[in-house]
Design a binder for these strands. Structure first.
Lengths: 128, 128, 128, 128
DNA sequence: TTTT
DNA sequence: TTTT
């Protein structure tokens, strides 16, 4: 069990890059207000992959309010001076767009993007 | 966003049934202790599907301690007297077995069963 | 561990009542969309107590979008015909108001109401 | 909304320190297995305060299995070379002890420690 | 109806 | 470094 749920606003536009194998990766910091908190936020690094990444790149930007559901991961990397560093980041499993800043979409509904197939089974099928 | 996370013990062995289309469905009540609570628990109906259901049928029983991650669903059904009833239940998305009652498995590790494919990406692939 | 996190819209205005000991209790159904889901929602009963209840009564109504953080509880009661019934409901521990329908509040920020005292400790105090 | 839920084992005994104002603070790394993961874990820094800290110091140690419920915080500090660094850590709001390594406690039940007062209301009080 |  |  490794679950993180955050509501906040993007501190900057998502940066979308591509791995050597061609997978899209988006990253941005999420400003999550602390309780009591006008000018008191945690800026939490978020990473999203593939269609989640592409959707973020196309649909949200600096200031957008989102709900991120994901897992907390510690990633190792080599710093410029050759030293080994560790950074914590949240790998998004789904992102729910809580407002629609720019394009006031005519259908109104909220958009949720998810990194896996769905497991929704109709009520009627249950054999009891 | 519809997320439920529970830790508790099975109040009875899982019942495994099959839909007309052949899908396995397991159901059981989970005793979740309230704070302060020896003899003070909520008995929460859990439903699991397909491989989650089969694994539950094979690996856990009355008294097993588990962590259930799922969503809360309201299901409508027709009662015996023809009246329409609604029941709330948690549809499991993953079940983590926190103890191994019967078979003291030699490898020691915990078992997690999950209803969808995994989205684990290796650290090294990240292009930054 | 008994945790529920829901995002949805109130299906009706909160009903605020008072216990014999004078505690406020608010109740309403929350429409939580399923994935894929325009016309496909679970209507989940929510209960809030004391200042959470009063705030809900004053600040949100039918159609308001909220994030509810709480626990899932099974409550027993006696039906009109004398039979014993059980109902599941979510007891809210905090409610975050994700939009402000009517009154475009002048202070701008989002409003979160919480049922317990806060445990926020300043960063500087940590002795390492 | 800033919520983190983790299940893992302590990578070392908790270190308990005291702030200048006398508050207890415990810190340790939690090894949280990734899916698929025997030798594949994230080591996540956990911080607990006051009675949570004292209980951790007294009741759990390296290898203990726990469920941590908390929030993700970014803390700034000054490194030895005077540069400003940021570190992410989980501030525990409750810790559930999922096993009892050393002392096979005679009372059986699980121990949950929580950082705030409880909001449990009896079922009977609800006026409907 | 029920778990430890 | 940063959001409203």
């Amino acid at each position: 069990m490794n679950k993180v749920i955050l509501v906040g606003r993007l501190a900057q536009d998502p940066e979308v890059r591509y791995t050597q194998s061609g997978k899209a990766v988006a990253s941005f910091n999420l400003a999550v207000n602390r309780f009591g908190g006008q000018n008191n936020a945690d800026f939490i690094p978020i990473v999203a992959w593939e269609k989640l990444a592409e959707s973020a790149g196309n649909n949200i930007g600096k200031g957008s309010k989102v709900l991120v559901d994901g897992r907390l991961q510690i990633r190792s990397y080599e710093a410029n001076d050759g030293s080994k560093r560790r950074v914590a980041e949240v790998v998004a499993q789904s992102i729910e767009y809580l407002d629609r800043k720019q394009q006031a979409s005519e259908n109104g509904g909220d958009l949720t993007v998810d990194s896996f197939g769905k497991d929704v089974f109709p009520d009627e099928e249950i054999p009891f």
